[in-house]
Design a protein around this nucleic acid. Sequence first.
DNA 1: GACATTTGATTTACTGGTAAAACACTTGTT
DNA 2: AACAAGTGTTTTACCAGTAAATCAAATGTC
Lengths: 186, 186
Amino acid sequence: MTATDGGARGGAGNGGTGPGGDTVAAVVRQWRTVRPDLDTGPMEIIGRINRCAALLQQAEDAPLRRAGLSRAEFDLLGALRRTGHELTPGELARETFSSGAAVTKRLKQLSERGLVERRGDTRDRRVAHLRLTEAGRDLVDGILPEQLAYESAVLSGVDGARQGELAALLGGLLGQLEGRLDALRA
Amino acid sequence: MTATDGGARGGAGNGGTGPGGDTVAAVVRQWRTVRPDLDTGPMEIIGRINRCAALLQQAEDAPLRRAGLSRAEFDLLGALRRTGHELTPGELARETFSSGAAVTKRLKQLSERGLVERRGDTRDRRVAHLRLTEAGRDLVDGILPEQLAYESAVLSGVDGARQGELAALLGGLLGQLEGRLDALRA
DNA sequence: GACATTTGATTTACTGGTAAAACACTTGTT
DNA sequence: AACAAGTGTTTTACCAGTAAATCAAATGTC
């Protein structure tokens, strides 16, 4: 949250969102009332991205949890599936944007569940190579279509053309962020 | 993550993003290669939203951490500041979209730090009313402009017109999600 | 007016993540 | 060949959040 407020409106207190639109709009209005001197522009993008992400994640839980997987676990399995080859823990960490320690933990659980297999590198005995087991691969292949269908349904309130625009604009922003963010981290 | 893959590309392995754009585009390409039968459309939106949110949150850490606040703490203080009146723990939980338990914990810390004050309700002795102390208010008012300026800088790679479109499209999506999501939670 | 129900908040037990330290091994230097 | 430095992974200690249980007080019901 934050982004100067992913945190927005619930429902109870002042009775929903009103005509102005989404909850972030309501928050922005509040800020403008108490601090009319500030430029609240950035909130309208960043706040909404955060809030959308939070809601989408909650929503996505449903199909994944049915399969007994957390998001993070599915991401890891997905990385193995989509690259099509073995990955080391370090590579998996980079693929899934998580810390090495987190990957270690997840791998432990997933291999206990028989979804993933380890193989030690023969040259460099520090590194391990991970691959999906048959069961792991089947699981991913079974879930993925459900997941995509569900996501499609979630987005269905926005018409096709707008979806395209949104994807393009987000791609532009993301490209910027990925390129420049490290530099900006002042 | 997930959204069928907020988890994307790092840098090492296959050498960055390539000409195709952001990391999510690269992930989508991988999926299309191994599972050409699937409609990867939703990933382009949901994956990017998740990834943007993750990057933005990392980035936002900077100004807030300087003030010794986590995102969640700032959200809580911000809710008190922008509503302009006292809130109960329950209301704060709704405002910040977090669980009551989480709010209880944060309030404990924030009041220990002297940023927030409690007052018991006289009518209903279960409820408490929270307000910012002078120090809390000053802190929020001091940080907020910095925060907004920082966010502005983060977004500056996208030109003004596109920022407007993006905000509008995200608002539309968010409105849909907020309205319909509970219904969809199958 | 006692008693089940509901509501608001807190506590408890637990989970999953992180940062920093520790390990284990490799690589470069001399 | 020995050893410093570097790299890949795991371990440790810790922290924040959650769900479920608990506590406390209000409210409805008979």
